[in-house]
């Protein structure tokens, strides 16, 4: 029961986590003694009790001294993260079952900050020091487990500097959503299959199965996809050539019809589409995406791919 209550409080506190850009303020910092800190307190108490009983003034003075060292180190520990500026926390999109990269960009506003760490569940990165008026970027990788769009995980920024008897911490989170794409499946949907679906829908009239076969090299023209450059011949010093796949009008624009892919398990379906998008992008083809609710017109490039993958990540299973 107590444990649950503890978790409940923790959750409440975590919900107050602030988003960048922010400067860590006094009222955002929590401080508690670490286990060695509690031992230290015990040491002080033993010295105090013994001296009190023996009427030993030296012992009393010594215990008071250590007690104030203990108290003042609260301040020192708090100062080690107080005023730290969090400029941004970027979360890179990732595929499920892989790692998501998180980039922290921090700077020390007023004075030098030393030895603090940012952790998220079992992952942790350490910052050795940030000098005054300097900024630092550091990456952290966290596991992305399941497809979806999530709120940013809560990160704990903590420090036990300088004596390790206190730990000061604060909760921070990114203002970005964490987007996890479906895990790409092993195989993509072959291009000809996509084409045949399109034919069925009546978008492409003629189907020539040999069309996407390699026909030969032609000289490079401006606008040709980089992915089709024949690097082999380039490396032989023959100049730039593009691989010719014949007449490609109509072929360049492929549309993936979500409803036409006959797999019952929606996650598997999404994984397959995900892989297909990756394949098509690497082939340099133009591709689009269509469900009964939305329609993305064909395009190519990193941005386009991201847009498509994000739709997969957001896809609601109804």
């Amino acid at each position: 029961m107590k444990f649950k209550l503890n978790n409940f409080i923790k959750q409440k506190i975590k919900n107050r986590a602030k988003e960048p850009p922010l400067v860590i303020k006094k009222n955002q910092i929590y401080i508690l003694p670490t286990p060695p800190g509690f031992i230290f307190l015990l040491v002080i108490f033993v010295i105090f009790a013994g001296s009190f009983n023996e009427n030993n003034n030296m012992g009393l003075l010594f215990s008071f001294f250590l007690f104030f060292v203990f108290l003042i180190s609260i301040r020192e520990t708090r100062n080690s993260i107080l005023g730290l500026k969090i400029i941004s926390i970027k979360i890179e999109n990732s595929f499920a079952l892989s790692k998501a990269k998180i980039i922290f960009h921090l700077s020390a506003e007023k004075n030098e900050k030393k030895l603090f760490e940012i952790s998220c569940s079992d992952k942790m990165i350490k910052f050795k020091s940030i000098n005054k008026n300097l900024s630092v970027k550091q990456e952290m990788e966290i596991d992305s487990i399941k497809r979806g769009v999530y709120n940013s995980p809560v990160f704990t920024l903590s420090s036990d500097y300088p004596y390790g008897i206190f730990k000061a911490w604060t909760y921070i989170r990114s203002n970005e959503k964490q987007i996890i794409y479906p895990a790409p499946s092993k195989n993509a949907i072959p291009v000809h299959e996509l084409k045949s679906i399109m034919e069925e829908k009546g978008i492409i009239k003629d189907s020539n199965k040999n069309e996407d076969e390699f026909k030969g090299l032609k000289e490079y023209e401006k606008g040709d996809s980089i992915k089709r450059i024949s690097w082999k011949s380039y490396s032989k010093g023959l100049g730039l050539f593009t691989k010719d796949f014949g007449d490609q009008t109509g072929l360049d624009e492929l549309i993936i019809y979500f409803d036409e892919i006959k797999i019952n398990n929606i996650e598997k379906k999404l994984s397959l589409i995900c892989k297909t998008i990756l394949e098509l992008e690497s082939m340099g083809l133009k591709y689009g995406f269509e469900t009964d609710k939305m329609n993305i017109s064909p395009g190519t490039g990193k941005e386009h791919q991201k847009k498509c993958l994000e739709i997969l990540a957001e896809f609601k299973n109804e």
């Binding site: 003075l61 007690f67 104030f68």
Partner: peptide
Amino acid sequence: ALLFAFLLF
């Protein structure tokens, strides 16, 4: 800390 210790003392 020493200063405060004396005060408390």
